[in-house]
């Protein structure tokens, strides 16, 4: 490269041009427009899921519910092993003891029965039963958390069935459409036509009442709502032009499902699962309450409520504690589902 030395005359000329007497608008030289710089973004675009998370965390009810659910699940796992009793161990001399927790007497955990008599001193019981005992002297603390375990297990099974059977059934029905869809929808109509209670009673005729017949009944009808939601969403998506574009590129069925259809129905799927769970929990509790569910000595929240209901006048704590726990679980799942729906589908928000 050759450098050109400016001679003095040039330099002077330039200076006089560059330095006008008064500052004027001409002094401002526009920065050349560079489209690549203009389009650069400081932060990467937030993905759909990240935005949804942020929206969920702004919802106080949902966050509180989530935390409570985590605490309740943790308690259902560690609660039964926090004291020396098991859920089935009977100890008749210690029957019908009210709840007593050292330091929590002011909350009602003082060991006094409905007549204000401290049963622990009267009967000379040394150990504190935190949630009291039932008529056979079984520790209710252990039994309540065991029951919560059952409820959460039912929740898990319901979610799993929804996700596996419901999503696949609805997906296949919508994706292949036509005669297959017609046939599959008629089956669903028949299934929803049979009341759940009849199904479970039929199962109890063959099997014995218990968790197995409840799960079998759920396998038969529990996923129908999800199948319908997924089918509706898929039908709507199937005709969208991005799906057609992918098909003109020769995408396989599995690729279309994985990359285009499923990610777009994920929101409604999650919301539906979260709304199915409390229904399933309540279904189990209801069956146990009317005596068609879990059988003694197994504990489920429904069984405990039924036991407490029989003795509501003399030992209200037997009803109160499991009722509060199951209400908490159901309210929390409902609030979380609500929050998730708002977070995943902002258009639904009022």
């Amino acid at each position: 490269m050759t450098t050109i030395q400016p001679n003095d005359g040039d330099f002077k000329n330039l200076r006089s041009q560059d330095r006008p007497a008064e500052p004027s608008a001409d002094l401002f030289v526009p920065q050349p427009l560079d489209s690549t710089v203009r389009e650069e973004l400081a932060a990467p675009a937030p993905t759909f899921w990240k935005e949804a998370w942020e929206r969920l965390f702004k919802n106080k009810g949902a966050v509180v519910s989530l935390v409570l659910l985590i605490i309740l699940s943790a308690m259902s796992l560690i609660g039964p092993s926090m004291n020396e009793f098991t859920y089935r161990e009977q100890h008749i001399p210690h029957s019908n003891l009210p709840p007593k927790v050292a330091g929590l007497e002011w909350l009602g955990f003082d060991g006094k029965d409905v007549n204000g008599v401290d049963q622990y001193t009267q009967r000379g019981v040394e150990t504190n039963y935190w949630f009291g005992t039932d008529e056979f002297g079984r520790d209710l603390w252990t039994r309540v958390w065991k029951g919560t375990q059952i409820s959460l297990f039912i929740a898990l099974v319901a979610a799993f069935l929804d996700l596996v059977i419901g999503v696949i059934y609805g997906g296949i029905s919508a994706y292949y459409g036509g005669r297959i869809d017609n046939f599959m929808q008629r089956i669903i109509e028949i299934l929803t036509g049979i009341p759940n209670l009849i199904v479970i009673i039929l199962f109890i005729l063959i099997l014995e009442p218990g968790i197995r017949s409840i799960i079998l009944a759920m396998i038969i009808t529990g996923w129908v709502g999800m199948a319908r939601v997924v089918r509706g969403q898929m039908l709507q998506l199937k005709g969208q032009e991005f799906v057609l574009a992918s098909r003109t590129l020769g995408a396989s069925d599995s690729r279309l499902m994985r990359k285009h259809l499923l990610p777009n129905v994920m929101g409604p799927i999650i919301v539906t699962v979260m709304f199915t769970i409390p229904t399933a929990i309540f279904f189990e509790a209801f069956l146990s309450f009317i005596g068609l569910g879990l059988q003694a000595p197994l504990a489920s929240l429904g069984v405990l409520i039924e036991d407490g209901y029989d003795a509501i006048r003399s030992f209200p704590y037997k009803l109160l504690i499991p009722a509060v726990v199951i209400s908490l679980v159901m309210i929390c799942f409902n609030l979380l589902a609500d929050g998730l729906r708002d977070a995943l589908d902002p258009k639904m928000r009022k």
Binding site: F48, E241, F242, L244, S246, T248, L249, K259, P263, N264
Partner: peptide
């Protein structure tokens, strides 16, 4: 053989 679609709002997958 490729295709360009009418509706630019529905022709791109919003999750990609």
């Amino acid at each position: 053989v490729q295709m360009i679609f009418q509706d630019p709002y529905s022709s791109l997958n919003p999750r990609m």
